[in-house]
């Protein structure tokens, strides 16, 4: 039982990260129907920037939590800038182009960002300085670490803030209006370009935080870390119903738990025919399953009929 509980905790932590990243995919898709494949790289850049900052401050006598906080504060504007530039330079000129063009551009941007990071931070895995004292709390035979609690809490907080922003502020109304019908929203006096840029920036900020969380949790950052994480978060977004905020959150957390339980139990359940090496496969099996049986996702109502 304690093992099961431990796997759920692992899954929740992983799932919170997926959820935060999935939100970025889903927001962009919701507003311009673009799957921004470069979104995972924003997570990577967030982790890398935070690494540089935390590494530089690790020698000082600032409290560790403050150092990580400064790391996050440094990562967010950098990612926002990259997110904005991405939209402005690569996607805006293609907004009225066939949908395939921005999609391929997104893949190109992803490759460019990876290699820029390779040039800046080298190809070696970067080890985060181990500054946060390691504390654990026992719950029902399992243990949860301080970092895990921080990740889950931060994610919940950010999801709450995002939901509030989208459903309770004027900016949120403008975003939803743009997502429903950009043309009419424009006629109502909404500056579409600004709203779209804003969506990218918010998604990038979320990605930056996710990057710092992943980096400090595993203690390692690497220029290629964003692609697989991005693919999984994308699967989570589809699982929940792409374009749907609550769906992305639910999808992320579900996917994290499915992965943890899958890796933990598939070996025993199949008598070791399948092993834990299938961990990464679960995300994509879920993706295929959803696309076959419920193409609009768990919480998605709108079927993809918009262009």
């Amino acid at each position: 039982m304690d093992i099961f509980l431990q796997q759920i905790i692992n899954g929740l932590t992983l799932g919170s990260v997926y959820a935060i990243v999935a939100l970025g995919y889903t927001m962009v898709y919701g507003i311009i129907q673009l799957i921004n494949f470069a979104h995972g790289e924003l997570v990577m850049i967030g982790a890398m920037v935070a690494f540089s900052v935390i590494n530089a401050l690790a020698g000082t006598h600032l409290p560790p939590v403050l150092i990580v906080f400064i790391g996050i504060l440094a990562a967010i504007p950098v990612c926002m800038l990259v997110g904005y530039a991405m939209e402005r330079i690569a996607y805006r000129p293609l907004r009225s182009a066939p949908r395939l063009a921005p999609l391929i551009t997104a893949i190109g941007i992803s490759i460019i960002l990876q290699h820029l990071a390779l040039l800046v931070w080298s190809r070696n895995p970067l080890a985060f300085p181990q500054i946060i004292p390691f504390v654990t709390f026992p719950i029902g035979g399992a243990i949860i670490s301080g970092v895990q609690i921080a990740i889950i809490l931060t994610s919940v907080l950010m999801m709450g803030a995002l939901t509030f922003m989208v459903y309770r502020t004027k900016l949120g109304i403008a975003m939803r209006a743009t997502s429903q019908n950009p043309l009419v929203a424009g006629l109502m006096g909404i500056d579409i370009d600004r709203i779209i840029s804003f969506t990218f920036i918010v998604g990038a900020a979320l990605a930056a935080v996710a990057g710092v969380m992943v980096g400090t949790y595993y203690g390692i950052a690497h220029y290629g870390m964003g692609s697989l994480l991005g693919m999984k978060a994308f699967s989570a977004a589809v699982l929940g119903g792409i374009g749907n905020l609550a769906g992305a959150m639910l999808g992320g957390i579900l996917l994290g738990i499915v992965e943890a339980l899958g890796a933990g139990y598939i070996g025993d359940l199949t008598n070791n025919v399948f092993g834990s090496n299938y961990q990464d496969v679960f995300a994509f099996m879920v993706l295929i399953g959803v696309l076959v049986f419920r193409p609009s996702g768990l919480l998605g109502e709108r079927v993809g009929d918009r262009a």
Binding site: L14, L228, G275, S276, N277
Partner: peptide, 22 residues
């Protein structure tokens, strides 16, 4: 014990290790 596997990019071993812990 039966072989557990990650990849050369895996950084999350929590699920595998939790299983092994048992």
């Amino acid at each position: 014990l039966p072989r557990e596997k990650g990849t050369d990019k895996t950084t999350d071993f929590m699920a595998i290790l939790t299983k092994l812990k048992g």
